[in-house]
Nucleic acid binder design. Structure first.
Length: 152
DNA sequence: GCCAACGTTGGC
DNA sequence: GCCAACGTTGGC
């Protein structure tokens, strides 16, 4: 089983949205980065665990845990001309963009802020914390996962 | 294939 | 809103 960290802007989609939606399961759509797409396609597996991270907001940080519940499949928002993430170059017969379904598992009582994560020395090598890391899905090692859960 | 210009991410 | 650090585009 692999572990991940997945970013979302809470103004777009936050942990409460996932917690309150039917079946607590949603497609993680809108990924428009090839590296992240390849990660979803090649490395993500059903049963993987992921931290839900709020980015580009007042208090960035990890807010909970979810589970990957599908393999990668075509992101339908790429085919929708009125959608924010529409991509005319994504051909339904040969989809350029993919997504996975995620299911809510847990919401932390208190957000683990980016600042707090940075102060934890055992997380120094975490991908999220590396300078210039803009990938919206990054791997989390078993050790890092454990350290983060223990912070809560 | 190079690289300048441009667009995006995301913390602050 | 600023800006660093990317990624993408397109002319050559």
């Amino acid at each position: 089983m692999q572990r991940w960290l997945m970013k979302s802007e809470p103004s777009d989609f936050c942990i409460d949205d996932l917690m309150k939606c039917p079946k607590q399961t949603e497609p993680w759509d809108g990924i428009r980065n090839y590296q992240v797409r390849n990660t979803m396609r090649d490395d993500m597996k059903i049963g993987d665990q992921a931290f839900f991270y709020h980015s580009s907001c007042k208090e960035p940080g990890i807010v909970g845990i979810m589970e990957i519940v599908s393999q990668a499949y075509a992101d339908p928002t790429a085919f929708d001309p009125v959608h924010k993430h529409f991509d005319p170059k994504s051909d339904p017969d040969n989809p350029r963009w993919l997504l996975v379904d995620v299911r809510f598992k847990e919401k932390f009582e208190k957000i683990l802020t980016l600042t707090e994560l940075r102060t934890n020395k055992s997380l120094a090598a975490m991908r999220l914390l590396q300078r210039g890391c803009r990938l919206s899905i990054t791997p989390v090692s078993q050790r890092e996962w454990k350290a983060i859960v223990q912070m809560g």
